[in-house]
Design a protein around this nucleic acid. Structure first.
Lengths: 136, 136
DNA sequence: GTAATCTCCGTACATGAGTGCGGAGTCAAG
DNA sequence: CTTGACTCCGCACTCATGTACGGAGATTAC
C-alpha cells in the first residue's frame, strides 16, 4: 500500500508542480526523501498528505514558517516540547476561528437581509473584524 | 467624532505604514479620499476600521483580491448582487472554519495526550486537513 | 518667517512563495 | 540499444505584497 512515488507522480497526486516539491524540500517542509537508485527521490503516500496539508494550511493564513512549526508536531519530539508548541498553535487557531465566525455571522446577516428585501443599513462585515483591536 | 485624519495619523491609528495606505489605495482597497487643502488626503475613522479589517482578513488567508470582494459588500449595490456575493463568500468562510476546527481538534488531542504522559501515536495534525480531498 | 515635519508622486527595491530553464544523467518502451 | 520521457541541479525569473527613496511643495511649531 505504501507505493513508492517519483517526484512527478507525487506532484500529480498532490496537485502541485514538481518544482514546488523541490522548493518545499529546500525549505525544510518536506524531509529529505530516500534516493536509492540513481539519486532519484523516492516518496510515499504520506508525502501526498503532507503536501495537501501544506496547501490547505496556506489557505488558512499560515505562512510556510508557521506550517513548518505545525509539521514539527508530526515528528518524534519530547512530549513537553510538543505540548507547548501545540498549545501555542492552538491559541492562534482559536483566534482565527473566532475571527472567521464573526465574518460568517456578518455574511449570514447580509444574506438574510437581502432575502427579506430590506434595505441594508451599514455593512456589518467590516465591523465583524474590528472589535478587540484596542485591547492589544 | 468623525475626526479628519492625515495619511500619517491614519497610518498610526491603523498600525500600518504610510506607504501601505498609498499602496492599498492604488490597489482599490481604499477609496480615493477627499483632498481639500493642498491635495493632502483626508481620511475618517471609517478608514481606520477598513484597514484593520484588511489586516485581519489577511491573517485568515484572504489575499487582497478576495478582500476587495469582501469590501465591495460595504458599498451600496443592488441587493441581488450583494446577496450572491455574500453567499459565495459565506461558503469560503465556512470551509475555512471547518478546516480550522479540524486543526484545533487535532491540537487539543495532542495537548491532552501529552498531558496524560501517553506516548503519542501517529500525529493527528496532518490527518486533520486531508479528508475530503478526493471528492473534489 | 523660517526650520522641522509632513505629504505629494513615481519609481525602485525587498521578501515570500513559487515557476521555469537548460544541460546532463537515468529509466522504460519498443 | 536507441529514443523519448523523466529527473537531477543551480540559478534566474515571476507575482503578490509591501517598503524605501528623493526631490518638491504644504503645514506647523517656534
Amino acid at each position: 500500500m505504501k507505493s513508492r512515488l517519483t517526484i512527478g507522480k507525487l506532484a500529480e497526486a498532490a496537485g502541485v508542480g514538481v518544482e514546488t516539491i523541490r522548493f518545499y524540500q529546500r525549505s525544510g517542509l518536506l524531509p529529505e526523501p530516500e534516493r536509492p537508485l540513481s539519486g532519484y527521490r523516492e516518496y510515499s503516500s504520506d508525502d501526498v498528505r503532507r503536501i495537501r496539508f501544506i496547501e490547505r494550511a496556506q489557505t488558512l493564513g499560515f505562512n510556510l514558517e508557521d506550517i513548518a512549526g505545525l509539521l514539527k508536531l508530526d515528528g518524534p519530539q519530547a512530549c513537553s516540547v510538543t505540548h507547548d508548541l501545540a498549545l501555542e498553535k492552538l491559541h492562534v487557531v482559536e483566534e482565527k476561528i473566532k475571527a472567521l465566525d464573526a465574518i460568517r455571522d456578518a455574511l449570514q446577516q447580509m444574506v438574510r437581509q437581502c432575502e427579506r428585501k430590506h434595505k441594508r443599513g451599514t455593512c456589518p462585515i467590516i465591523q465583524s473584524l474590528v472589535r478587540e483591536e484596542a485591547k492589544g
